[in-house]
């Protein structure tokens, strides 16, 4: 029932695919209100992650995969997404610990730790038009689902769905953090690229989960 190393590796592969697929879209979103490098930076980061999957030692846990992703993104991304996602994956890895398999409540805790890592690093709050606007509803939905007894796959599905809505809901917001905040009111009407990529990554996690558990 729980999500194991197979899921974690599949999530990473799907993340790389989805980021590559949406690279141009993310670049465009970021060009509208930022410096235009989000799609390219994230794509480079996940491209660097993929070969490292082959170097994982036998018996690696989901936590080990998350940690490897964290370190690779931190040292290859080069924009704000590097330290932000890097910290998220690092905190997620710590929350996952050395468990070989993650159940619903564990997945909810991992997501919460990731979100808290991003908040600690970027000091953004809900409503600032950042990736937190995708992560916070995702964490809340995951916690509620886990509380209601949902399994890991259903917890991730709930999180991914809430993240997508959260990303969409950044469009009318005025950016208060990051490069987009320099634009003030002119950032209204554009979706935040970090929130969008967060939603894509969480959807990839949910897809990998439903694949691995056959749900």
């Amino acid at each position: 029932m729980g999500l194991d190393i197979t899921w974690a590796v599949d999530w990473v592969r799907r993340s790389a695919e989805v980021v590559a697929e949406h690279r141009v879209e993310l670049i465009r979103l970021d060009r509208d209100i930022g410096d235009g490098d989000h799609g390219e930076n994230l794509d480079r980061g996940f491209e660097a992650v993929i070969p490292k999957l082959d170097d994982l030692a036998a018996g690696s846990t989901p936590g080990d995969v998350l940690k490897m992703v964290a370190m690779t993104l931190i040292s290859t991304v080069g924009g704000a997404a590097g330290p932000l996602y890097g910290t998220a994956y690092l905190k997620a890895a710590a929350a996952a610990g050395s468990d070989a398999s993650l159940d619903g409540p564990a997945v909810a805790r991992v997501l919460e730790a990731a979100r808290d890592g991003i908040v600690a690093r970027g000091k953004a709050e809900v409503g600032d038009k950042t990736m937190i606007d995708a992560w916070s509803p995702a964490v809340e939905a995951a916690a509620a689902a886990a509380e209601a007894g949902a399994d890991a796959t259903a917890v991730l599905a709930a999180a991914a769905s809430a993240a997508a809505s959260g990303a969409e809901a950044t469009e009318p917001l005025v950016a208060r953090k990051g490069r987009a905040s320099y634009l003030g009111e002119r950032s209204v009407g554009h979706r935040d690229p970090g929130a969008q990529s967060s939603a894509l990554l969480l959807q990839a996690a949910a897809d990998a989960a439903s694949e691995s558990t056959g749900a």
Binding site: G79, P83, T87, G178, R179
Partner: peptide, 13 residues
């Protein structure tokens, strides 16, 4: 700029 601070803070960690 902002992300330079994020990178530096991450390095500090």
């Amino acid at each position: 700029l902002g992300s330079a601070i994020l990178t530096a803070e991450t390095a500090l960690d």
